[in-house]
Amino acid sequence: MPRTFLISHSDLPEISAAIAEQFPDLPREYSVEGFGWDNLMVRVGTDHVARLPRRPEAISAIEFELAWLEQAAQSLTVPVPHIVGKGSPFSDYSVPWTINTWTAGIRGLSVPPEQRRSSAAELGRQLALLHRPAPRDAPEKPHRGGTLAQRTYLTQPQIERLPGQYSAVVPVWEQGLATRPYGGTPLWLHGDIHPGNYLLQDDHTLAGIIDFGDVCQGDPAFDLATAWVSFDAAGREDFFGAYFESCREETRLDQDLVPRAKGWAASAYVIAVLSSDLSTPDFVDMAQWTMGQLLHEP
């Protein structure tokens, strides 16, 4: 049975030795860059980063990136990471890991939400570029790109674990659940577009989009949930304005798109985060912010 956390900061010596052995042409300068919900990131020199799953559920995300990242992200015009190599097992770590190009920028979560507005319109345009018809064999992830009803099996148990002070967000999820399911062409989705997975310039304009481990096909409303996760009301106006100027006509005419996106925001970025023991403080802050935006939207 795999251990809960496959790798941690304390494993840096073993990670460094594995990178040096398997990628001898890269600089031998290593430092822990940080960790997200799924991966430990180790910086390699100035131009590369190793991404190593830190929990068993994250292993498939690396495989998805290896198989689909280049095809899914090819329409984007901002920088995205490129995979330059797949790592082999080392020590007692036997799961897939990768070396990626380093995408420079400030993590969106490091910038106060009110200051992210400068990135809103460009993020909306980039998602419109990304949301194009996906091939039939593109990954399907019902709990992300499927219908909200397909996420019920995850959300209901999470609601039961949700601390009482956050229960006010549950009706937002239920309102989304009552909307008409998406019936359009399955589109490419990032699958996890929140402020931890895009980067900003010093002036807080968009610098790049990262972490495509949940790339999949389906309902664009899932990606559009980031409007409440990322921005205040003014930023959301910029975001949706740019998105609807650039998106496909079929998407633009979907009158339930925005209500579904709010339901996704409540389920995936508030209920899921605040009911999980994997949540880091920055993710908890993000979820609390999102809840406030959903409940107090003008």
Rank of each mutant, 00 (worst) to 15 (best):
152 T>H: 08
152 T>A: 13
153 Y>H: 10
154 L>G: 09
154 L>F: 14
155 T>M: 13
157 P>E: 11
158 Q>G: 11
158 Q>L: 15
158 Q>N: 14
158 Q>S: 13
161 R>W: 12
161 R>F: 12
161 R>Y: 07
162 L>I: 12
162 L>H: 02
163 P>Y: 12
163 P>C: 00
164 G>W: 10
165 Q>P: 03
165 Q>T: 12
166 Y>E: 00
166 Y>L: 08
166 Y>F: 11
167 S>L: 15
168 A>Q: 13
168 A>N: 13
169 V>H: 02
170 V>W: 02
171 P>A: 09
172 V>I: 15
173 W>V: 13
173 W>C: 02
174 E>S: 00
174 E>N: 11
174 E>L: 12
174 E>M: 09
175 Q>P: 03
177 L>Q: 02
177 L>V: 02
178 A>E: 11
181 P>F: 00
182 Y>D: 14
182 Y>S: 11
183 G>K: 07
183 G>S: 15
184 G>F: 00
184 G>Q: 08
184 G>N: 03
186 P>V: 13
186 P>S: 10
186 P>Q: 12
187 L>D: 10
187 L>V: 14
188 W>I: 01
188 W>F: 10
189 L>S: 09
190 H>N: 15
190 H>Y: 01
190 H>E: 04
191 G>P: 02
191 G>C: 00
191 G>V: 01
191 G>L: 00
191 G>T: 00
192 D>S: 01
192 D>Q: 06
193 I>E: 08
195 P>D: 09
197 N>D: 04
197 N>H: 14
197 N>T: 13
199 L>K: 02
199 L>S: 07
200 L>D: 09
201 Q>P: 01
201 Q>C: 07
201 Q>D: 04
201 Q>G: 01
202 D>C: 05
202 D>I: 07
203 D>P: 02
203 D>S: 09
205 T>G: 01
206 L>P: 04
206 L>N: 03
207 A>I: 04
208 G>P: 09
208 G>I: 07
209 I>D: 04
209 I>T: 08
211 D>A: 05
212 F>E: 02
212 F>H: 08
213 G>N: 08
214 D>Q: 05
215 V>K: 05
215 V>F: 05
215 V>H: 07
216 C>E: 08
216 C>N: 14
216 C>P: 12
217 Q>C: 12
217 Q>S: 14
219 D>C: 13
219 D>Y: 09
219 D>W: 13
220 P>D: 14
220 P>G: 13
222 F>S: 14
223 D>T: 00
223 D>M: 08
225 A>F: 12
225 A>H: 03
226 T>G: 10
226 T>N: 14
227 A>C: 06
227 A>F: 05
228 W>C: 06
228 W>Y: 07
